[in-house]
Design a binder for these strands. Sequence first.
DNA 1: CGTAACTCGATACTGTCACTATCTAGCACT
DNA 2: AGTGCTAGATAGTGACAGTATCGAGTTACG
Lengths: 226, 226
Amino acid sequence: MKISELSRTTGVPVASIKYFRREGLLPAGRATAATLAEYGDEHVQRLRLIKALTTLGGLSIAATREVLTAVDRADSADGTLKAISYALPVPVAQAPAVDEDEEARAGAAAAADVAGLVAAMDWRIPATSPHVRGLTTALRELRRLDADYRPERLVAYAELARSIARLDLERAAAFEDAPSLAEQAVVVLALSGPMLELLRRLAQEDLVRRRTTFEDSEDVGADAPA
Amino acid sequence: MKISELSRTTGVPVASIKYFRREGLLPAGRATAATLAEYGDEHVQRLRLIKALTTLGGLSIAATREVLTAVDRADSADGTLKAISYALPVPVAQAPAVDEDEEARAGAAAAADVAGLVAAMDWRIPATSPHVRGLTTALRELRRLDADYRPERLVAYAELARSIARLDLERAAAFEDAPSLAEQAVVVLALSGPMLELLRRLAQEDLVRRRTTFEDSEDVGADAPA
DNA sequence: CGTAACTCGATACTGTCACTATCTAGCACT
DNA sequence: AGTGCTAGATAGTGACAGTATCGAGTTACG
């Protein structure tokens, strides 16, 4: 398959394919001459994966490269899962410190919250996990906003998160023996998040709608404002 | 409070404060002269909210403006929730069509999946909801990747999403009568997502670790102190 | 064989985003 | 009166994700 055909079958412009090659997301084609290379199904598959991770998963090119590297290094099923999980970007930007003292106090309180949660859930997770750090940052900011961060609520969310994680791993396990395990695992781990977020929004929308049946019936089943 | 003080108490550079003003995220100070304005606590609060939405929530400046506009227009509690819910960006980028025929077929299949899900969940949601469109896009791409998109699994996720949404609304309801309802609602709706994602990752990490107790014990429990 | 169409890899350019810096004035406090 | 701060406008920056162009080589068709 020539690059133009690869472009046609995937819908990705030739220039972008070259860009992904440069960035190391896509292996080079098998060169048949100085100015000609042959691409195969694996390139089609890889391009689809790249598209999914960037457009659906919202990953940057750099993050996508990390994830794909983990995919390519994959050996054992569980090792793959862990590698991918760590390669995925943490969805909370690390804000720099604002005020020394206040920062330290709020940070310590948030860290205690997280530690308490991890203990309550009996999670065996090192304090160095990027996700722990991300959660600590998130709680620190929520605390600053006087938002509701009480441990009981956190635990309630965490329990549900655990149920979801179980579903995720069940889904990934279904591909345990497939050669495409790593790719499927990536899809599961990276794309479940956005999907779940959508489902949560839909559920919210439904619940809110049910509470407001009388005061506005304008857009149930009908239109939406531009 | 002068702009320099506002900057100091919030940790946001003066230039950024001016930028947020230009972009309409922050109301102007009360002008006391042609080149002097007075800022108050509401500006501090608003800046905190902006920071939270952009860094934690990952919202763009434009999206943040939408959300804040909804906050400012807020009247009834439920109306606010709905407005904010719709102002939040949908976490799935709308990919343009690749192939006419194939696109139409896959799109129709995905749309059917979503319709089935909405029916199964008894959700009262118009088909024009941005979230419905986003979910349709997501399923279309997952389908293209031969991922697991079976209705049973979707329903399982959706049930959990509903439980989470209930927690969200409970949290928001706690502020029903507070003057800061809209702001708290924003925090709940916009920032629960990233937090939940973090919790899900932690739960995944824990589950994976428990399945691999023997092959790597390097980082269970003990860890390098920062 | 000739040539038009295609390809490779390198380099340069473009548009968007979120700031950040600079500039011209005009106060305001001492 | 002078120093320091301010407002608002405009311009510049750096990162990101492509997109476009170019020179040189290749190849399929007539």
